[in-house]
Design a protein around this nucleic acid. Structure first.
Length: 426
RNA sequence: GGAGAGAUGGCUGAGUGGCCGAUAGCGCCGGCUUGCUAAGCCGGUGUACUCCUCACGGGGUACCGAGGGUUCGAAUCCCUCUCUCUCCGCCA
């Protein structure tokens, strides 16, 4: 959420930002509602003041006079009640609109309508050329007895799967490697709730707007399954005023992630690329409101993810996500795409976002400076490793002619010291 | 799931209808005292919105878990909900 004061002061900046993101948003309506709301608030506050003062006088008055004075008060109360209700209606309308105003993208965000116009800014590693007929991850997984998508579909519907044997272990190995790396870097590991109140979904910017992508419990519980541990981790300090000296907070969390993938029927239907549930290690930073520091963190969390990919010996590229492909909350986003031979292309495996105070304002997450002033925090997050897409990349890039799969040294300690997994297949 | 107790400022903890945005202690900040430290003394110390002001600053309103209600007036009385604790049941 943007600060209404910022919108008042810079309506053109907000309008231009929304346009760059291709998100419709009626700033004039917001400004008009805001103006009216303030006028009404002034009126109601002064009515209340009168009411309060009069009530105090009654308390001080002689008991005999009280009934008569109280009767007068009763009349005035009606007007106040009516005006209070009107203010509330106005405020709610304003708040609803404010929740949907997109964050202003950074200058460095490229113009563009959708992901086809994202700008590649870095490429690392060279996609391998195979001197044999390469298999995709499904072929390898099924031939090795590591993967059962039919069973997944039978017990949980399409886009669900069972990992078996060494592939299940490999998932754990990747997660644990990623987690250990981040802990070594000083990030505080967290185990977090993956079922959260919808208020938290609003706080992190997923609602309103993203309801279709989240699994929700029925009306008995106001809870949603998170699509990423970014949600509970970012919200950890909701409603707190932290000391600036205790910032930044650097967190890392592994969790299951759940995504409905509504509206993707027929898209990436084969294999593990687009699934309803997966494991992910996520990094989150909460810091003071300083644009330069946020930017430095942004580069740092991208570098952390690169370190993982390099250790896993996977080719990747980084794209600067264009305005039209950017979500409502982000200032800027860098996606990291890892080479996936079966796609003949890079596929998104990481997403690094910088929000400034957009999430923190919704979550009411603030800090106090040494001088005693209070400000809204900045937040950022990035994937460290997301399980199934990493497995696709590992299986496909590291497969060998005989159907076994090479393990990069970084993973070996987590796989019993082995240099490869699988048995030779025909 | 059943029974009971509770939720007050950074923390502890008073407050059962008007004098309460809230006693007190701790903590924290500033000052005095002090060879240094400790102790002591004095003063200050919530957040949000809003109005006035170039600003310094000042005024107003709201907030005692959340939402409703009673009342001229609610931290205080009533209702609903959430959460915490204790006991019982069930279960990993």
């Amino acid at each position: 959420m943007l600060d209404i004061k910022f919108i008042r002061a810079h309506p053109d900046v907000v309008r231009a930002g929304a346009a760059k993101k291709r998100i419709a948003c009626d700033i004039d309506k917001i400004l008009a509602l805001d103006r009216e709301w303030r006028e009404m608030t002034v009126e109601v506050d002064s009515l209340r003041q009168e009411q309060k003062n009069a009530s105090k006088l009654i308390g001080a008055a002689a008991p005999a006079d009280r009934p008569r004075l109280a009767e007068e008060q009763k009349q005035k109360k009606e007007l106040l009640k009516q005006r209070e209700a009107a203010v509330e209606v106005h405020y709610k309308a304003l708040h609803e609109l404010l929740l949907r105003v997109p964050n202003v993208p950074a200058e460095e965000v490229p113009e563009g309508k959708d992901d086809s116009e994202n700008v590649e800014i870095k490429r690392f590693g060279t996609p391998r050329t195979f001197d044999f007929e390469a298999r995709d991850h499904i072929a390898i997984g099924e031939a090795q007895g590591w993967l059962d998508v039919l069973a997944g579909a039978r017990i949980a519907g399409s886009r669900n799967y069972f990992l078996k044997g060494d592939l299940s272990l490999l998932e754990g190995a990747v997660m644990r490697y990623a987690l250990d790396l981040m802990v070594k870097k000083g990030f505080m590991p967290l185990s977090v709730p993956t079922l959260v109140r919808s208020e938290i979904m609003v706080g992190t910017g997923y609602f309103p707007g993203g309801e279709d992508q989240a699994y929700r419990c029925d009306e008995r519980d106001d809870l949603c399954l998170v699509g990423t541990s970014e949600v509970p981790v970012t919200a950890l300090h909701q409603d707190e005023i932290m000391n600036a000296a205790d910032l930044p907070k650097r967190y890392v969390a592994q969790s299951s992630c759940y995504r409905r993938e509504a509206g993707t029927y027929g898209k990436d239907t084969r294999g593990l690329y687009r699934v309803h549930q997966f494991q992910k290690v996520e990094q989150v930073i909460v810091d003071v409101a300083d644009a330069e520091r946020s930017l430095a963190h942004h580069h740092a969390i991208v570098a952390n993810a690169e370190e993982v990919l390099q250790a896993l010996e996977l080719p990747y590229r980084i794209v600067n996500v264009c305005g039209g492909d950017l979500g409502q909350p982000q200032i800027q986003k860098f996606d990291i795409e890892t080479w996936m031979p079966s796609r003949g292309n890079y596929g998104e495996t990481h997403s690094a976002s910088r929000f400034h105070d957009f999430q923190a304002r919704r979550l009411n997450m603030r800090y106090r400076t040494a001088e005693g002033t209070v400000h809204v925090c900045h937040t950022l997050n990035n994937t460290v490793a997301a399980s199934v897409r990493m497995l696709i990349a590992l299986l496909e890039n590291h497969q060998r002619r005989d159907g076994t799969v090479y393990l990069p040294p970084a993973l070996r300690p987590y796989m019993g010291g082995r240099e490869a997994i699988g048995r030779p297949i025909a």
